[in-house]
Structure formats: C-alpha cells, structure tokens
Design a protein around this nucleic acid. Structure first.
Length: 511
RNA sequence: GGUCCGUUCGUCUAGGGGUUAGGAUGCCACUCUUUCACAGUGGAGACACGGGUUCAAUUCCCGUACGGACUACCA
C-alpha cells in the first residue's frame, strides 16, 4: 500500500499569500488524514525573483498556523535537498535523458529574437504566437540545425534553452480529482522551455522531476496550474513515469472581497484587512503588510476559516479543530468555483475561538499587551478580566481596548456621561452604597447585587439611575460588563476607592 | 484573440430530476439586561439566461452571457 505523500511548493518571492496557506492546509489535511507525509519544497529556480527572507517567512507562517512539514529544508527527510536551487545536477541529468530519447531539444533562439518574432507576428495580426510544432522547424534549434552545427554552438558556449518537443495531434487527458477529466489537444500546446539559459530548470521540469523523485502521490495546487498540466502529463510520459504519476487536484481561487478578480496583496492595504498569515516587512511601506497573527487572529480560527473557503464536509458543522478537519477532510468535497474572501466571516470565526478559549489561556496571550502598557496584574485577576470581557471582542487586542479601565489604577470619566446621568440627589445613596460595600467581608457579584438593590429600595430611588452612576464610577462610561461583576473583579478596596473618588468628582463637576 | 476552468440568498455554502431549495455569516426587528455586548426568537434574501431531454429540470445535455486562470528562458 502506498502511503500518501504531498508537497507544498511555494516560491520564495515574497510574503506567502493566504491562498497559499489554504493550499498548504489542504495538502496537510490530506496527508494527516491518511497518515502520510507533508513535504515543504522551496521552488527557487528563478534567481531574478528571489527575495531574501522569504523562505524564512514561509516556514514561520506554516509553523504559526500549525502546519509543520514532515520533510523539507530544515525539517529533515530522505528525499532532499528540498530547495530546487540545490538540485541542479539532478535536473541536468534528467534533461539529458530527455534530449537523448528525443522528447526535448536544444534551442538557441535568444529572448530578444523571440520577442521580436512575437512582436512581428502580433503586428501581422497573429496574437497567438507559440513556439510549437508549426514553427519549430524554422527556428534555431537542434531539430533543424545539423548535428555538427549544434555541437559547434554548444562547444562555443552559445547560450541555449532546452524545450519540450510536444508530440503532434494527440489528446492529453488529465484526471483532476476536483474537476473530472480535462482534455488538451497537443496542437494547442507550445514547446515549453524546460531548462533556462542560466542552467536552472523552469517550474515545469523541476516540479515533475521532483514530484517523481520525492514520490509525491497527490499534487494539490492552485487553479492557475491547470492550463499547463497538459504539459506536465506529457513530461511524465516522456520520462516513462506514467505509472507513478501523481493524482492532480486543482483548487479554485480565492477572490477579492469586493469587485472582480482574485485576492491580491493590494486588497489588504486597500480594505484594511490582512491577507497574509503573518506580517511582512518589505523594503518600502507599500511592500509591507500586516498579518493575521498581528491582527490578533488565533491560528486555529484562520485555519478553520480557510478550510471552509472552498471546502465543506456536507454537514452543518462550522467550527472545527485541526484534528476534526483532518478527520472530515476529503478532496471530493472541494468546490469548483472561486470563493470570495469574506472578512466578516473570518472575524466571526475568531470570535468563536476566543469564546471557546479558557480564560487562563486568553490571559497568557493578553499579558504582553498589558505589560506594554506598564501594568502587571496577577494571573488570577487577568484571567477573570478576560472571562468578563471576551464576549464582546473579535480580536485579542480588543480585550485591552474594551476594558482597560479595569486594569488601570484610575478611571477616566466621560464628562458627557457624567453630565447626562449624574444628579446631586443621588449623592446620599451613592454614599450609603459605598459605606455598605466597605463593610462587606465577601465580595461576590451575586451577593453584592442583592445587597445593593435592597439598599437602593430602602432609599426609594430608581435602581437604574444609581446603577448607571455606579457604572460611571467604575468604568467611566455608559457601557461595559455588569456593575456587580466589575465590583467582584476589582475587589473591595478598589471598588470603594473608585466610588469615593467618583463622588468627589461628581460633586466638583456639579458646582 | 486563443486554450482551459467556473456560475445556488450580499458573502461562505448544503442539496440534487418531483424539497415550503437547508445552514452559516452579514443586515433588520423583537426578547433578555442597569448599559454595551453575548445569547435566544423572528424577518427580508438565491438556483445567470435561452434552448433541448423528460410526465417533471435549479439538478442532465447544448448554447449564450458573465466571471476567472493561463497564454515568459515567473512560479
């Protein structure tokens, strides 16, 4: 029985787009479901687009999400190296094999020559220029040139590429796990460059050779690869590897939240939402982006959200732990159409994750933010604080914004709230309540509520009026958690102190 | 332009020859509440269009429209 081996193969050209994370996730889920192997392979065959730090970024992103590769650069594995730039010789020997058996040929046409030809054809009305069977016998390649001429050029060190010799008049069939059979007429396929003039392979060659050598069983990748999959199948045939050719699954795109087209990094900046897993610091502000992590997302929520963007188990369950995703996942349930990136839904997922998280865990995550404000509450206090406020936040940093007055030593009172709700007639009642509170030995919300309400009734005033004033005294404004819950959290001393200070403040602002 | 892919509420989607076309999110209303939230209840909201096949089509087939990807010595 063959165990499943899948790979996530990004190219280190910058920050890893959230769509890439979803691709990685689906690969990971399939691997884990069948106790297979999840491989990270770095596709760095384009020297021009190489961006320093991108590989590290990709690895850090995957690890933050919890998608740890079983094999890959820095992760071990017996099929390395896992960076394509370190596999030159492998591609070289394989390309030689292809040339030997007539499936590939040397092409000496330069980029400039090809550009010029393309332009000329275009001017003549042919916008469809392809380097293919129809034209290859007119070009400078080893198919047309004499063997002596070819040998001379090679010996001279003339720059060359190696191209795939696409067979004529065949139908190539791709069995896609998501889309069913897809057919390509070879007449429509061009003679793709397999080896570039710099000696490095193109994606097309490298991905077939590596997938074969790394014993990949399933290729799960973005839809943008579907049009070139015909070439890939041809390549497997050229190498005689059809029997072990991996299964293909081409994922639908993730679309912009608004408008048309696929989600791009620009959309993130434009709409003020993250589209990358973690922040990326580029050379310029325009090339720098906030990540889901820095935005305050829980990685589990991100994965959960991403998993349901294009896939669905067919049940009505929406909240999944990673283990549940592994259990429920199947390629057959992946949809065909593109999915719009819905940030509101992502927010909702994060809210659900925050609600489900133990208070102590929330406190642990919140602590750095609180400490940055120069505060250092006890573990117990911060956990209770989180429990009191987590209902009303979507993101971790909001946990501070929404209740900071409970952590800070003093409350800043909203003057509008005070002038609107304070009435000097309430002063005696406020005083009484403060007095009563200062005499309590236990300080739990329920008992306090009963006691204070009784006291209010005795005074013959409206409960709402005084409660609102108590709220202002404790929170500084007209919103927040329950009054008595805040009292319990703050404890007797702080509560009494806040009420006393407030009374003083009210009296002064009234005069 | 060519090749390939796609199209169910605003969004994510379930479903699939006969359903009141289901859920979630967002929106609105109500309830709860001392406030803001949470929660609960309810509401508006979809099968792109045109032809076939069929007793019956949103579901199958073919077109059209619309959208997208690809069309590099980038991945």
């Amino acid at each position: 029985m063959n165990t499943i081996r899948v790979r996530f193969a990004p190219s280190p050209t910058g920050a890893l787009h959230i769509g890439g994370v979803r691709t990685a996730l689906y690969n990971y889920l399939l691997a884990k479901k069948f106790h297979g192997t999840f491989i990270l392979r770095i596709e760095d065959t384009d020297q021009n687009r190489f961006v320093p730090g991108a590989e590290e970024y990709i690895v850090e992103s995957l690890l933050w999400c919890g998608l740890k590769p079983d094999e890959g650069p820095g992760f071990g594995g017996e099929y390395g190296p896992y960076r394509q730039s370190e596999r030159r010789e492998i591609y070289q020997t394989h390309i030689e094999e292809l040339i030997r058996n007539g499936h590939a040929y040397y092409a000496f046409d330069t980029t400039e020559e090809l550009d010029a030809l393309r332009e000329k054809e275009s001017a003549a009305g042919n916008h469809n220029f392809k380097y293919d069977a129809g034209i290859r016998m007119k070009m400078r390649n080893s198919l047309r040139l004499s063997q002596g001429e070819v040998e001379r050029l090679l010996a001279e060190g003339a720059p060359y590429t190696v191209r795939l010799k696409v067979p004529e008049n065949q139908v190539v069939t791709v069995h896609d796990l998501i889309r069913g059979e897809v057919h390509f007429q070879t007449q429509e396929l061009d003679d793709k460059v397999l080896l570039k003039a710099d000696g490095l392979p193109t994606y097309h060659l490298a991905n077939i050779v590596d997938d074969h050598l790394m014993r990949i069983t399933h290729v799960i990748r973005g839809e943008e690869w579907l049009p070139s999959t015909g070439h890939h199948v041809l390549l497997y045939q050229a190498f005689g590897w059809e029997d072990t050719m991996p299964a293909f699954a081409h994922l639908p795109l993730i679309l912009k939240p608004d408008g048309k087209g696929k989600l791009s990094k620009r959309d993130g900046a434009r709409l003020g939402i993250p589209v990358f897993p973690i922040s990326w610091a580029g050379d310029t502000p325009e090339d720098s982006f906030v990540g889901f992590r820095e935005f305050g997302f829980d990685p589990g929520a991100v994965l959960n959200f991403l998993a349901l963007l294009g896939w669905n188990p067919g049940t009505e369950q929406e909240l999944f732990s990673i283990d549940e995703l592994v259990e429920a996942f199947s390629i057959e349930k992946i949809g065909k159409g593109g999915s719009r990136f819905d940030f509101d839904k992502a927010k909702w997922f994060n809210h659900q994750y925050i609600l489900a998280m133990p208070n102590a865990e929330l406190a642990r995550l919140l602590r750095p933010l609180v400490q940055a404000k120069g505060l250092d509450p006890s573990e117990k206090f911060l956990a209770a604080y989180c429990g009191l406020l987590k209902d009303r936040v979507h993101f971790l940093p909001e946990l501070w914004e929404v209740g900071h007055y409970l952590l800070e030593p003093e409350v800043e009172m909203n003057p509008d709230a005070v002038s609107k709700k304070w009435n000097p007639d309430l002063a005696p009642a406020l005083k009484n309540v403060t007095e009563w509170l200062s005499q309590q030995t236990s300080f739990d919300a329920e008992a306090l509520e009963a006691g204070v309400k009784e006291l209010i009734n005795e005074q013959g005033i409206k409960p709402g009026a005084l409660l609102t004033v108590l709220r202002i005294a404790l929170a500084g404004d007209l919103k927040g958690p329950g009054v008595f819950e805040m009292m319990e959290l703050l404890g007797k001393d702080a509560t009494v102190q806040r009420l006393a200070r407030a009374l003083h403040h009210f009296n002064n602002s009234a005069s």
